[in-house]
Amino acid sequence: MSESTEKKMVRLRSSDGEVFEVEESVAKVAKTLQDMLEEDCADAVIPITCVRAPILTKVIDYCKDQVMISSSSSTTNNPNERTEQERKAWGQKFMEGVDSSTLCELLVASNFLNIEGLLNLGVDKMVSMIQGKYPQEIRDMFNVVNDFTPEEEEEIRNQNAWAFERDPYYKKRSSSK
């Protein structure tokens, strides 16, 4: 927490060429980077080829937070440890305002970099966006082009009629109890 001795820095380059300098501990939140750093095969700038700068910024924000909550001045008691409630609130705040396109990019990034916590946040958000929606609504949300012919569409609908016929907005989805 307090100013420790000089911190080792790591440099990351996004797909669009921007270079980010972060503390090693921050980079190591990403398992993929951790492995690279531990095998010492990352001396200069690590290229993160599938992640654009604005997304990488967000990813780094996440990693910084993880470092903050996992580090602690004493081993017995970590004041930054979050309760379930706080974790949820924090996660919600972090994902707030993330649009569908950004969400997809975040998912790709956290998947590639192997950051489980961020991946889970993204998946949760994605699930809540898709659940209870009709195909057309999902297409609109994510700019998906419908490449089915009307006949094909009809065939699929008939095959699993039950999944399509009920209006999801009026269906009560009672949770487990």
Binding site: V127, I130, Q131, Y134, P135, I138, I156, R157, A163
Partner: peptide, 19 residues
């Protein structure tokens, strides 16, 4: 992975999104 968190009903509905 994402689909595995959805109720099967929603999951099947995604089959109609695109090919």
């Amino acid at each position: 992975h994402i689909l595995s968190f959805l109720p099967t009903e929603d999951c099947i509905r995604t089959s109609l999104i695109a090919k």
